[in-house]
Design a protein around this nucleic acid. Structure first.
Lengths: 365, 365
DNA sequence: AACCCTTTGTTCGATCATCGTACAAACTCG
DNA sequence: CGAGTTTGTACGATGATCGAACAAAGGGTT
């Protein structure tokens, strides 16, 4: 038992319905009060009351009456482009970036700076990030409601970096007091990339997003929500075993996916430093390994779609098709698993980080 | 968006709070109105009103006043042992079984009959099951609210068996009109076994339950709820690849877990027909394969506990320890994964099936 | 035995948010 | 210019909760 510990009194109902109205606007912007009423099942009167409150809070905005068909023209509502905004920060091995999105998730300002953090203490990157954040905040000129930081590693619920394999000095770092008093949250980069796919690329509500980099991580989206696992460490796909007799891995096992399909492993196997120059047999081995690992994940989770991101889109359609074939060979129940290449590019996680902030405001008004 | 499409009106609040009160009783039976109020945050007056309704509906029962400390003695409430009951039916390859549980999940009557269904049409087993169901229903003498059928295969949401590997003639079968007009649901056997572990053996809210049989299936419990996947087919662990060059599998791939750790595979490898006589090297290979497959699942889902059920408890503590060792070698972030043997035995799924019926009534009063 | 104290459960008016209906507003079409 | 249609608001009714006051039922103390 104890499914939801929250008691339901009057105020909770109001909040729930405010969020319901907002959700309707997000889904079908611009939209009239009457349409919202019809789609939510609430009365027109109630929707009017809710909308009034949301207009007052600066979350919604009323456009000029749109004329067209018969009847009184509707007053279209949309998310307030000048409403509370979200600030996203991305800390990567070789750069930092920041951006501001408005309530719709549209990028209103963005900046990026190269900066090597491999052996630097967290303070270096955080100082650069703060600088960038100040700049994009000023450029956007919006009221920023909070900050979300994308980190390539395992993060705690709020502000603490638990472990970042490629940023050794970041273990245990606290990104909390970043920008004068704004609430700060942290999230894993692959998780954010998965949300970006869901939010900005019409991704399906159930999907496995594979992020290829030095390691291979996964963001899991189930029922339209990010799945983070009991300890926030879900999605560690890189160490699925694809060959029990394979090469040793830094995780202690042998034959992990990362040792075949990770970036460094690919370059090493191809004897090159250029991802675009990988020979076919290396790509083939990677596809085979990804197929084995992903088949396990798909069989376990029953997700209909796998999205390949990170370095994989760069490796081309041939890789996608090969992974799809290998995957289908081993998937038990689904005959229709899709494998897609991410079209969002590396900016997705950053934008999604900023969007989590406004999302929070929209879900809990 | 569109997280929950339900509008929240007055009646929904009432229902939510009724469920909240029931949940409190389930968690800490027997319990007084005042304690429920304190733990839920509702007013004593409101709780009184809710409890009155639940007493009227026959879901709760009031005991004699318990005396003890200072102050007016409380009137303890508990689930009504004579309230609506659930009927569970289990269809297996070589038997059928049925049982009735009361609102607390306690078994009030149970029956079982051997019956080979390998090549029989569904009607044969269903007729036997109906017979048993009638008998246990009469024996328990309770008001049965619904029926849930446990099937060793993939089932649709309501009443339809999609595919049952070991019951070839059951594909597409409808167990709907089973017992004169009672609502019937279906569920996968491994899923139910996982719920049994959660409900009746104090299992953790996040766990992976592995059911060893002819195949190897898994029931996934996340956040105290069963995870069934987008198509209800989640938990197919048996075809995770543990050795890409391994023997062919009926699924079309090679080296699936099932080919090493499934019952038939174990007996074949041990050249015996007795599970208790398996040689150590066979158990060792099974443990190694389970470790590889489970590590992938644990890395992906970040569950803290794995429960081994089905035939595995019979294979003993040595297997458990070996699986645990193999697992820990390959789990990335968690240093504390537990591996347990299920203590419930084969009756768990049947009991859980019956319990799903009453659970439904408790969650949506 | 009488009294005080504590805790439980109920009663009753106030409050809040919804619903249903009625009505005014605004526009198109004939 | 009027009929018809759709939108948005106003207002009383309903349902559910809250807060406070009150009656009930003991234990402990003198």
């Amino acid at each position: 038992m104890r499914e939801s510990g929250a008691r339901a009194a009057g105020g909770d109902v109001r909040r729930h319905n405010l969020a319901l109205v907002l959700g309707e606007v997000v889904d079908a912007e611009p939209v009239s009060r009457a349409t919202i009423a019809a789609r939510t099942g609430l009365t027109r009167g109630t929707v009017s009351s809710l909308v009034e409150e949301l207009l007052g809070a600066g979350l919604l905005d009323e456009l000029a009456a749109a004329r067209g068909g018969p009847g009184r023209p509707a007053n279209p509502l949309q998310l307030n482009r000048s409403g509370p905004a979200g600030l996203g920060i991305e800390i990567e091995v070789d750069h930092v970036a920041a951006c501001v999105v408005d309530l719709t998730g549209a990028v209103r300002a963005t900046a990026r700076a190269a900066s090597d953090h491999r052996d630097a203490p967290p303070g270096v990157a955080l100082a650069r990030a703060t600088e960038l954040a100040r700049a994009v905040r000023a450029e956007a000129g919006l009221d920023v409601a909070g900050v979300a930081v994308a980190v390539p590693g395992v993060v705690g619920t709020d502000g603490i970096v638990v472990r970042a394999p490629n940023l050794p000095r970041w273990s245990g770092a606290d990104v909390g007091p970043l920008l004068d008093g704004l609430p700060v949250t942290t999230a894993n980069e692959a998780d954010l990339a998965a949300l970006a796919e869901l939010w900005f690329a019409d991704g399906p509500p159930d999907a496995l997003y594979v992020s290829g980099g030095v390691g291979v991580g996964a963001g899991i989206v189930l029922g339209g929500r990010l799945f983070r696992g009991a300890g926030g460490r879900a999605g560690e796909l890189g160490h699925v075993v694809v060959d029990p007799d394979g090469p040793n891995c830094r995780c202690g096992g042998h034959g992990c996916l990362e040792q075949v399909a990770g970036r460094d492993a690919l370059l090493r196997a191809g004897r090159t430093t250029d991802l675009d120059a990988l020979p076919a047999h290396v790509l083939d081995a990677a596809a085979r390994a990804l197929g084995v690992a992903l088949a396990g994940a798909v069989n376990l989770l029953d997700v209909p779609v796998v999205v390949l991101g990170g370095i994989y889109p760069r490796l081309g359609e041939a890789l996608r098709a090969a992974v799809h074939d290998r995957l289908c060979e081993r998937v038990v129940h689904r005959s229709d698993v899709q494998v897609r290449l991410s079209a969002l590019g590396p900016g997705g996680a950053l934008r999604a980080a900023a969007a989590t902030v406004v999302r929070q405001r929209l879900l809990r008004p």
